[in-house]
Each structure stands twice: as C-alpha cells, then as structure tokens.
C-alpha cells in the first residue's frame, strides 16, 4: 500500500499540508489556552466574591448646585457600620477607602466602599434584608450582592469563551476547506494516473486509501512539529503564569486536537476522492 501510495502521488505533493496543520495546531492550542484561562480566572473570581456584598456610599448633589461633602459620607459610613456590627449573618465587614487622595485634598468628596462577607449558609435569604436596612437610612447607598457581580463576570466570560470556541471551530472548518482544495488539486494533477488505477481495478475506496496514506504522513509530521512548538511556548506560558489549571488537562486537549486533525485528513480525503471518482463508472 505504501509503495502504491507513493506511486500514485509523489511524496512532495502534500508537504504544504504539514505546514498548514502545524500552524492550525498552534492556533487551536492557543484558543484552548485562552478558553481555559478565561474559565479558570472566572471561577476564581466567582469563588472570591461568593457570599459577599459591596456597599457603595457615593457623593451626590444636595440641591442642583451643592455636592455632598466628605464629612457627610464619612458619617454615613460610620452609621452603616453601626447597623452591620450586630447583624449575625455578617462574618466580616471591611471599609475600603478611596485611593484618589489628591482629589480629596481639593475638597472633592469621594465614595466610600464597605465590603461584607456573609455567612455562607444564610447569605441568600438575608441579602435583601440587609439591602433594605441600609437603603432605609441612606437611600443613595448602592448595595451590590455577589449575584450582581457574578452576572457581569459570567456574561463577559461567556462572550470570551464563545470567541475562543469560535476560533477553534473556525480552524477545523478552515482546515477542512483547505484540505479539500489541496486534494482536489492533487486529484486533477494525477488525473491520468488515477484513471489508470481505476481501469486496472482499483476500487474508489482503494484509491481513497492510497490518497489517505499520502496525506496522513504530512499531517502527522505537522501535528508532531506543531505540538513541539506548542509545548515549547504555550505550556511554558501556562506554568509561568500559573493560570490555575493542570497541564494534564491541556495535554488531553492537545491529544484531542491531534486526533481531530487526523480524522479530518481521513474523512475529507475519502469524501473528496469519492466525489471525484463518482464521474467514473
């Protein structure tokens, strides 16, 4: 079969397939790193803000011209801390002062932030109650629960993950189109030999398998070299940045991507050759 395959298609004909696969493997792995990075960072953030609340006491206009002063905001902060102090649901409460001290020096009031950590088992039922208590005393206070934060993060992360998934799918789609075009061109270039093989009794599946052997060689080389480049760059990057997901997962993905490229090589070749030979009896 190997000899026949070499005789049907000169070995050099599919060399550029190897280069293409090498490049595609790198992009596919890059998109996977992006996907996993977003996924891991998102779950880290969600875990960090779980069962937490953020109270913002913003500066606001007393009338149409006068902005509330910093002293009033500080008083409101103390008042809120008083309310929270005895609430059994709250595990910790931390005041976060603004870092824009230069603006404060000019007499411009800065918002105050209070971060709360709620008791994990009782958080959900008590969030609304805490919000109501604070807004009753300071109507302008903005109270954000973990759900509010999480919704924004999850939405952004979903968009990013979709972009990376789309990139990976586009790569496989693009590879299919390019492989199909290369095989068609090769079939046209080998037209007289393919016809001769056909007349001599090679079945369409036999001719397809000869093409498959020829195309799988450069695909496997492309995968190997592509994976080596990925290992030297992306996996090093994963370890270096300590992205938080195991390399094992990434290696499994690399294996899966390689398998998909081999499967594409097999199925696209069979399909294109079968279509080409359809015109022959």
């Amino acid at each position: 079969m190997m000899t026949l395959s070499r005789q049907l298609i000169p070995l050099s004909s599919f060399h550029h397939v190897g280069l293409m696969v090498m490049f595609m493997i790198f992009i596919a792995c890059f998109s996977a790193v992006g996907f996993l990075f977003v996924k891991t960072i998102t779950s880290g953030w969600i875990a960090d803000i779980d069962h937490s609340m953020m109270i913002e006491l913003p500066p606001y206009m007393i009338d149409d011209e006068t902005l509330i002063d910093q002293a009033t905001i500080d008083k409101q902060t103390v008042k809120v801390m008083e309310i929270l102090k005895n609430d059994p649901v709250i595990l910790t409460s931390t005041m976060k002062t603004s870092n824009i001290s230069d603006l404060a020096d000019f007499g411009i009031a800065m918002p105050a932030f209070i971060q709360l950590t709620l008791h994990p088992d009782r958080a959900e039922n008590n969030e609304d109650r805490i919000r109501r208590n604070i807004n009753r005393i300071i109507p302008n206070a903005i109270v954000k629960t973990a759900n509010d934060w999480q919704r924004d993060i999850v939405q952004t992360a979903t968009y990013l993950k979709l972009i990376f998934c789309g990139l990976a799918v586009s790569i496989f789609f693009l590879t299919t189109i390019m492989l199909s075009a290369i095989i068609k061109a090769q079939l046209k270039a080998s037209k007289s030999i393919v016809e001769l093989f056909h007349i001599m009794g090679a079945s369409p599946s036999k001719i397809a398998s000869l093409f498959q052997i020829s195309i799988l060689r450069p695909i496997i080389w492309g995968i190997l070299i592509g994976l080596i480049i990925v290992l030297l760059t992306l996996s090093h990057l994963i370890s270096f940045l300590d992205l938080g997901f195991g390399l094992g997962l990434f290696y499994a993905y690399m294996f899966g991507v390689s398998f998909i490229f081999i499967a594409l090589g097999i199925f696209v070749t069979r399909w294109v050759v079968a279509r080409y030979l359809w015109a022959m009896p």
């Binding site: 000169p10 007349i199 001599m200 009794g201 369409p204 036999k206 009896p281």
Partner: peptide, 25 residues
C-alpha cells in the same frame, strides 16, 4: 456496485494504443 465493478476490472487486461505508462515510475 462500484467496488464489484472494480473487481471485474481486475480480471481485464488493457493495452492502450498510447501505452499509458506512468512516466514517474
């Protein structure tokens, strides 16, 4: 089927007027 036709073709030898030898081989 195409594969059965291929099996029949294997039983047929053809000599072409233009020889049709593969030049690369």
């Amino acid at each position: 089927s195409r594969s059965k036709r291929a099996l029949i073709r294997q039983k047929i030898g053809v000599i072409f007027q233009d020889f049709r030898l593969i030049p690369e081989l």
